[in-house]
């Protein structure tokens, strides 16, 4: 282990074994490579997807984005109706889920009795942990029949004057997919929002209440504004999840190409279309078109995620700064104790 001891003058240099001295740069190099690998995964993924979609891009160009066709027999592919299906299901889901999730977070941090808070918070997080294939299974075998036999007839008879609530009722379709996505997204947004609310200092709440504000006035005037960027980011992340969900949607949306207004009708999304063709890509062009779809999906999710991160970062910086300040305080305390 130990190398031979040199003379007195080099006592500071030579007492550590070579292994020990190599350890620090080695650790730095190894961890750097690992970090570089993890960070460049993003670039790798983007590069490989663009490479893989080259064939389809050559053939269809950006016209791919504006074409509704997905014809495996004549090898004609386009993404428009999938983009439409993705947009409508994800937007509807987040529009329903966001206020619900914020309300749940409010209840969990502001209203629920203390012992209930932890329990309910854990339940909401459990809902977020349920695998999407199980939600899909539940969606197709339990929610689907309910949508077809109860919900859609009810919506048709009360709101049927709108074009959205007309058409053949079906266990699968945009409505079912939207509801499954909502159930997926609510716990994600709710648990992030809950943590945000918990970081708002209690003194701010007290400040508002001591002025004679009611609880709701305190929430609207102080709590929500203080947490607003974080809530927006949480909603964006939830939207990203809804856009990218493949399995649960694939199982309940009906996998049909075409653009229509009826929420009862079948449709398909980018992610679900890719997933659904896992065993059917017969030509290189079709495979390449699937990769093209994945590239579109990647671009959307990158945009949504980067946006969300930019919203979160300013908040994220504050605790870190506090942490540094705290460390410094501890250090000076330690020094004065000596």
């Amino acid at each position: 282990m130990e190398t031979s001891h040199g003379d007195e003058s080099s006592a500071f240099e030579r007492t550590r074994s070579r292994l020990d001295r190599l350890g620090d740069p080695a650790l730095k190099a190894i961890t750097f490579v690992a970090a570089a690998l993890a960070v460049t995964a993003l670039v790798q993924i983007t590069y490989e997807l663009i490479k893989g979609s080259r064939l389809a891009f050559h053939r269809f160009g950006f016209g791919f984005l504006t074409s509704q066709t997905w014809d495996t027999i004549h090898n004609q592919f386009g993404a428009l109706s999938l983009i439409f299906g993705t947009a409508i299901t994800a937007i509807l889901a987040i529009v329903i889920a966001a206020p619900l999730a914020v309300a749940i977070a409010l209840f969990l941090t502001e209203l629920a009795p203390k012992p209930v808070r932890a329990l309910l918070g854990a339940l909401v997080e459990m809902l977020a942990a349920i695998p999407s294939v199980i939600l899909g299974l539940w969606g197709i075998l339990i929610l689907g029949p309910f949508v077809q036999n109860q919900l859609e007839p009810f919506l048709g008879s009360t709101l049927g004057f709108l074009p959205f609530f007309r058409g053949q009722t079906s266990p699968t379709g945009i409505l079912t997919a939207t509801l499954v996505l909502t159930i997926m997204v609510v716990p994600i947004v709710a648990s992030v929002t809950r943590e945000l609310f918990m970081t708002v200092p209690p003194e701010l709440r007290e400040g508002a209440l001591a002025l004679g504000a009611t609880r709701w006035e305190m929430v609207r005037g102080v709590l929500l504004p203080a947490a607003r960027p974080g809530i927006l980011a949480a909603v964006a992340l939830g939207f990203g999840r809804a856009v990218g969900e493949a399995m649960a949607v694939l199982m309940v949306i009906g996998s049909q190409i075409g653009i229509h207004l009826s929420l009862f009708g079948h449709s398909d999304t980018l992610a679900a279309r890719i997933a659904g063709q896992y065993n059917g890509a017969s030509t290189n062009l079709q495979t390449s078109s699937l990769v093209y779809l994945a590239t579109i999906l990647l671009v959307i999710s990158l945009a949504v995620n980067i946006g969300a991160q930019l919203l979160i970062r300013p908040i994220d910086r504050r605790p870190r700064r506090q942490r540094i300040a705290l460390d410094r305080a501890l250090e000076t305390q330690g020094m004065s104790a000596d």
Binding site: A38, V39, A41, L42, Q44, I45, E48, L49, K51, G52, L237, G240, R241, V243, G244, E245, A246, A271, I274, A275, L290, V291, A294, L297, L298, S301, L302, V304, N305, I306, A308, Q309, R313
Partner: peptide, 20 residues
Amino acid sequence: LALDITNGIPTIVIGIFVFT
């Protein structure tokens, strides 16, 4: 930032990446 963004990539896209 890169880790958080990677975490947000749809898993089907990651599947397609390995597939390519």
